[in-house]
Write a protein that binds this DNA or RNA. Structure first.
Length: 561
DNA sequence: AAACGAGGCGCC
DNA sequence: AAAGGGCGCCTCGTTT
């Protein structure tokens, strides 16, 4: 019956308290103590499918899952919502814990989030500490009060329905993040090992260096004529200088054009060295167990709404290693990737007629090339990326002039976002996620320099590029989160009771992966397509822009295209 | 010994 | 004319 139920876990033990809430957030009944919170939540989930209201998903949901294998449908994460609302209200960076929100509500001194368990990774002894609540404040009371206040704040906004959607999607993402961290990404140690051995030589014992890295180091030193450490950019630069090659840096694109035989060897060394140090045997020991790679996702870890990860570099799995991601026997991976998401977002947000027409089809860049760039798809792509990132150097400058002439509304949107940022203002995503303000130190000194670009001016322009990109990147994240939430709900409806249901196992900005028994694979692929359609309508409304989610069913991630 | 910024590169 | 946005994590080399 109750659509919303507030939850607080007891400081010690398995118990807690629940309280049903009405449509405006006010309690419908007295708080109900329960001995086994996880069991009580599971029972009510099955019966009522409410939206669970609690201090922080990353704190409570894992503890529930430790006791009962229940999957919850919906929640309202007070900490994540508080961060969204604070940002919207211009208060980025303020403490967002339950205790901080409570203190602001009551006009009390606001505790900082420094000892917030979720923030520093150090779980504190008592749940009350975790949420920064004073010892004399009842947690459930605070949950109910802060929740009601958050709903009031949302209702007062210009577009409350959009912020509600954003809060729901962010909270659903928090549920998914906990579940994905527990389920893990299928990872074949055998395939990974074969790959490493093939590239680096047999696994060295102790802390020894792999054969191939030693061999490449020796070859590089011979070619450059000095015993330099290839991992030291400073040593490498001076060695090249002594060999008569002056380089501005040791970056890949510089080395590619260095015109010295040692450069090619060094490039290969750097490629393999990175694999070894970032995703080698030591990495696997630390992050892979039981055939699963278990990273920890940090929802709300990026101001644009993208997720971050803690440990394991889950969002940087090298393409080279994707063959190690293999479905269990009898299972498949459904990999879905939103192609050209950001330019499509730009089209939908700006409503630019020409760009919308291009974004109605399957390959925007190709379409654009045909209408504005003499059939040159590569230039069309560079132009659009430059518009969204604020690039002006090289050929991008000319291409931007074409965009400005042909797609004035789209260019107007990103240029206005840049101007706002340069002036120290904030911009918002489609659903209302808000950019931070530039640091308080900015803009101060404005001493003119010879070329006219004072430090303050350069900083302002850099911030303009940030707000320009934020508008697009954060709106793309809005859409991706909405897809994730919609897909998660559809998957829950798919799975059998008791058996192994389809599971979300990976989410990376504009890409999702589901691990599923083979008999559900086609249904999962269908669910992905429907989730994309649903998210597009929810986030962008009635737009001609198409947001295709390319989906493929594979046994191995490397086979996804 | 630990902390930090810089340089660099993986992913989107 | 104007030096392309976001992240995590590695190593180096210096500072504390």
């Amino acid at each position: 019956m109750a659509e919303w139920i507030a939850v607080a876990a007891d400081p010690v033990g398995a118990g807690g308290r629940l309280q049903a809430l009405g449509a405006d957030g006010t309690p419908l009944s007295a708080a109900e103590p329960v001995d086994d919170l996880a069991e009580a939540v599971a029972v009510r989930e099955a019966r009522l499918r409410p939206r669970w209201v609690w201090a922080a998903t990353d704190d409570l949901y894992p503890r529930l899952l430790d006791r009962v294998p229940v999957r919850l449908g919906r929640c309202h994460d007070l900490k994540l919502v508080e961060a969204l609302l604070l940002g919207y209200e211009g208060g980025h960076g303020q403490p967002r814990s339950l205790g901080a929100a409570w203190a602001r509500l009551r006009g009390l001194p606001v505790p900082d989030d420094a000892r917030d368990g979720a923030a520093d990774g150090q779980p504190s002894l008592f749940a009350a500490d975790r949420h920064q609540l004073p010892p004399d404040v009842d947690q459930l009371t605070a949950v109910v009060a802060v929740h009601a206040e958050q709903r009031r704040r949302i209702a007062a906004m210009e577009r409350p329905e959009r912020m509600r959607l954003l809060c729901a999607a962010e909270s659903a993402g928090a549920l998914a993040a906990v579940e994905m961290a527990r389920d893990g990404l299928p990872w074949s140690a055998a395939v990974h090992d074969a790959l490493l051995t093939d590239l680096l030589g047999p696994r060295p014992s102790g802390g020894a260096r792999p054969q191939e890295l030693d061999r490449l180091t020796a070859r590089f030193q011979e070619a450059i004529g000095r015993p330099v450490n290839p991992d030291s950019p400073a040593q490498v630069l001076s060695a090249f200088a002594r060999a008569g090659v002056s380089l501005p840096s040791t970056r890949n694109h510089v080395l590619k054009d260095a015109g010295h035989p040692a450069a090619a060897i060094l490039l290969r060394y750097k490629e393999l060295s990175r694999i070894h140090s970032a995703h080698g045997w030591a990495w696997r020991e630390q992050w892979v167990g039981g055939g699963r790679f278990r990273p920890e996702y940090v929802v709300g870890g990026v101001v644009s709404g993208r997720w971050a990860t803690r440990g394991g570099g889950a969002l940087q799995i090298p393409r080279l290693l994707r063959s190690a991601v293999v479905a269990d026997p009898g299972h498949r991976l459904v990999v879905a990737d939103a192609g050209q998401l950001e330019p499509r977002v730009l089209a939908a947000m700006s409503g630019d007629r020409g760009l919308c027409a291009a974004a109605a089809g399957g390959d925007m860049y190709a379409d654009l090339a045909g209408t504005a760039f003499d059939g040159d798809r590569g230039r069309a792509k560079i132009a659009l990326l430059a518009a969204m990132y604020g690039q002006t150097s090289g050929e991008a400058g000319q291409l931007l002039a074409i965009l400005r002439r042909r797609f004035p509304a789209a260019m107007g949107l990103v240029e206005e976002a840049a101007r706002v940022g340069e002036a120290g203002g904030v911009v918002r995503s489609q659903l209302g996620r808000t950019s931070p303000r530039p640091s308080a130190l900015w803009p101060q000194d404005d001493e003119e320099t010879a070329d006219g670009a004072s430090p303050a001016l350069r900083a302002a322009r850099a911030w303009g590029r940030f707000t320009r990109n934020f508008t697009i990147q954060a709106s793309a994240a809005d859409w991706a989160l909405a897809v994730l939430a919609a897909l998660r709900r559809r998957l829950a409806a798919l799975g059998p009771d008791g058996g192994a249901p389809p599971r979300l196992v990976f989410f990376q900005h504009d890409e999702v992966m589901v691990h599923t028994p083979v008999e559900f694979a086609e249904a999962v692929a269908e669910a992905v397509t429907e989730a994309a359609r649903e998210a597009s309508r929810l986030v962008f409304g009635d737009t001609p822009v198409c947001f295709p989610l390319q989906t493929c069913v594979v046994e191995c991630y490397a086979d996804a295209k």
